[in-house]
Simulated scan of single mutants.
Amino acid sequence: MQKLKDRVAIITGGAQGIGAAYARAMAAEGARVAIADILDGTSLAKEIEAAGGRAMAVQVNVADETSVLAMAEAVNEHFGRIDILVNNAAVYASLQLKPFSEIDVAEWDKVMAVNVRGPFVCAKAVVPFMRSNGYGRIVNISSGTPFKGTPNLLHYVTSKGAILALSRALAREVGGDGICVNTLAPGLVLSEGVIQNTDMREKLTGPVLASRAIKRDQTPEDLIEPLLFLASDACAFMTGETLVVDGGSVMH
């Protein structure tokens, strides 16, 4: 039996990398998937439909509330409802490791706009549709880094720490509406972007692997089942929680 049969799921940042892996997996479990990305997700939507799933691509800038509201309206109009939001879009793999004193305010603001404002305005846009159906699952993607205080990425780590607090507070506001809000916190994942960022991979892979109880690289596939759990009926009595999936680097 498909875990997400006939549910409608929005995956931000879904056109490539980990987001694309989420979109494929959710479609395979019966969800009607909206690939919401600043990039064009049309080819992925066509791939999913060719495999027998249902998908649409909608371009959106998650840092812009007007763009996000238009995206939510388009998804609801196309599929007739919104059940699941995966707040995956984030600035990360393009960042360069540097001391906090070398991070300029413009770069800080860009990270915060996408990584913190984005999940806020996306939740604000979809919750009315979820409330009207008395059902919703919001999965916010954080990171293991806030638990470690990882250096040289202060803006990113701060933004992902904010996601933990956002999820907890939002869970209390919408729990009475049948909406569960939880956080998925991956470790260092060998996504397309991380593989291409040589500096990040060379400086972080060794220490991260050494810190893990399970001594191997993490792939997007390691996140699929935990994501499906948080997006499904299986977590109906779980909200405001953080699920860390990083091979045992963080244990909390």
Rank of each mutant, 00 (worst) to 15 (best):
A21Q: 08
A21S: 14
R32A: 15
V33N: 07
M56R: 00
G14P: 10
R7V: 06
R54D: 01
A45P: 04
A34W: 08
G53Y: 02
A34S: 13
D6C: 03
R7E: 12
V8P: 08
K46N: 10
L4M: 11
A31Q: 13
G17M: 09
L44I: 01
T12Y: 02
G41D: 01
A45F: 03
G30Q: 07
A36F: 11
I11R: 04
A27Q: 11
E47M: 01
L39P: 08
L39D: 12
Q16L: 13
A36V: 11
A9S: 13
D40M: 05
A50Q: 04
G17A: 10
A20N: 03
A9Q: 13
I38A: 12
A55M: 00
M26D: 08
E47W: 01
A34Y: 08
A15V: 13
A20D: 06
I10D: 04
Q16P: 10
I11L: 08
G30W: 13
A50L: 00
L44T: 00
A28N: 12
A51G: 01
D37N: 07
A20H: 05
A25Y: 13
A23F: 04
G19E: 05
Q16Y: 09
A28G: 14
G13Q: 06
A28L: 08
A25T: 15
A9V: 14
S43M: 08
E47R: 00
G13T: 01
A31T: 10
G19I: 07
A25I: 14
A28F: 11
L4V: 10
I48V: 01
K46I: 09
A23D: 04
A21I: 07
G52V: 00
K5Q: 15
G13E: 02
L4Q: 06
A15Y: 11
E47Y: 01
K5Y: 15
L4C: 12
I18T: 12
L4T: 03
D40K: 03
I35E: 09
A20K: 05
I48M: 00
G14D: 10
Q16A: 13
E49R: 02
Q16I: 14
I18C: 07
L4W: 03
R7A: 12
R32K: 14
M56F: 00
A45N: 03
A23E: 04
A36E: 07
D40S: 01
A55V: 00
A50T: 02
A21E: 14
L39E: 13
K46G: 06
T42D: 14
R54C: 05
G19S: 10
I18E: 11
G13K: 02
A9D: 14
D37R: 05
A45C: 04
L4F: 05
L39V: 09
A34D: 05
A25V: 15
M56K: 01
V33E: 05
E47C: 00
Y22M: 14
M56H: 02
A9G: 12
A31N: 11
G17V: 06
I18A: 05
R24N: 04
I38L: 10
V8H: 07
A20R: 12
G19W: 03
L39Q: 15
G14H: 11
A23S: 15
A50H: 02
A20L: 03
G53Q: 00
